[in-house]
Computed example of a mutant assay.
Amino acid sequence: MREYETMYILDPGLDEEAINGLVDKFKALVEERGGEVKEIDRWGKRKLAYPIKHQKEGYYVVMNFATDAETAREMERVFRITPAVLRHIVIRKDK
C-alpha cells in the first residue's frame, strides 16, 4: 500500500450534517477497499483565491490515507461525480 494525501473543497452552503456525511463517505470508500485512513483534518470554511462555480468560499478537508492505486483512482472518480465537491486533488506521498 502507498501513502496518499487528498484535499477537497466542499460547497460552503452545505449544513454540518451534509458535510459530515460526505467526509464519512470518502473515508468509508478507502476503508471498504482495505485501505487505512490515517488522519482527517477539517480546515473549515475559507475564502477561495478565485470564484469556483460562483462560490467565493469553500469548506476545506485534508485526508491522509494508505491504499492501493486503484482505490486512489476510484476516489478521484467519486470526487468528480459528486456535485458538492468544488475542487479536489489526490497526491501520492514519496518516502
Rank of each mutant, 00 (worst) to 15 (best):
57 E>K: 15
59 Y>L: 03
14 L>Y: 09
54 H>S: 09
25 K>F: 14
29 L>F: 08
74 E>W: 07
56 K>P: 00
26 F>N: 09
4 Y>D: 09
32 E>D: 10
69 A>Y: 12
82 T>L: 11
79 F>L: 01
49 A>L: 10
12 P>L: 04
48 L>E: 02
12 P>K: 10
4 Y>F: 06
79 F>T: 09
17 E>C: 12
7 M>N: 07
85 V>I: 15
24 D>M: 11
70 E>W: 03
57 E>W: 14
19 I>D: 09
2 R>T: 04
80 R>L: 12
73 R>K: 15
79 F>S: 06
76 E>D: 10
68 D>A: 00
16 E>V: 03
31 E>D: 03
18 A>W: 13
13 G>Q: 14
64 N>F: 12
72 A>R: 00
14 L>G: 07
53 K>Y: 03
55 Q>W: 01
39 E>L: 11
34 G>F: 05
38 K>C: 03
8 Y>V: 05
44 G>N: 05
68 D>C: 01
24 D>Q: 14
7 M>F: 06
58 G>I: 03
37 V>H: 01
80 R>F: 09
29 L>Y: 07
64 N>C: 07
62 V>C: 08
70 E>Y: 01
9 I>Q: 00
47 K>A: 02
58 G>K: 03
54 H>N: 13
44 G>L: 09
41 D>C: 08
49 A>P: 00
28 A>H: 15
95 K>Q: 12
65 F>V: 12
31 E>L: 07
61 V>A: 06
7 M>V: 14
65 F>P: 01
57 E>H: 15
24 D>S: 13
87 R>L: 02
73 R>A: 12
6 T>W: 02
70 E>M: 01
72 A>K: 02
18 A>D: 14
83 P>N: 09
90 V>Y: 05
23 V>A: 10
10 L>N: 03
60 Y>I: 07
44 G>D: 09
58 G>M: 03
15 D>R: 15
73 R>I: 10
23 V>M: 13
88 H>E: 02
78 V>C: 13
92 R>G: 11
75 M>K: 00
33 R>V: 11
95 K>A: 12
8 Y>F: 08
4 Y>S: 05
47 K>L: 00
83 P>A: 11
70 E>V: 10
67 T>Y: 01
62 V>S: 07
4 Y>Q: 05
51 P>M: 02
24 D>F: 08
90 V>A: 04
38 K>T: 09
76 E>M: 02
45 K>C: 07
37 V>E: 04
64 N>D: 13
53 K>D: 03
36 E>L: 05
74 E>D: 14
84 A>Q: 14
7 M>S: 03
7 M>W: 08
47 K>I: 01
3 E>F: 07
74 E>N: 13
30 V>E: 02
49 A>G: 07
28 A>V: 11
77 R>S: 14
82 T>K: 04
23 V>G: 07
42 R>D: 09
89 I>R: 13
65 F>C: 02
16 E>G: 09
8 Y>I: 04
38 K>H: 04
61 V>L: 11
4 Y>A: 06
76 E>Y: 05
19 I>T: 08
32 E>Y: 05
36 E>D: 05
33 R>Y: 04
47 K>D: 00
41 D>M: 11
41 D>H: 12
64 N>K: 15
38 K>Q: 05
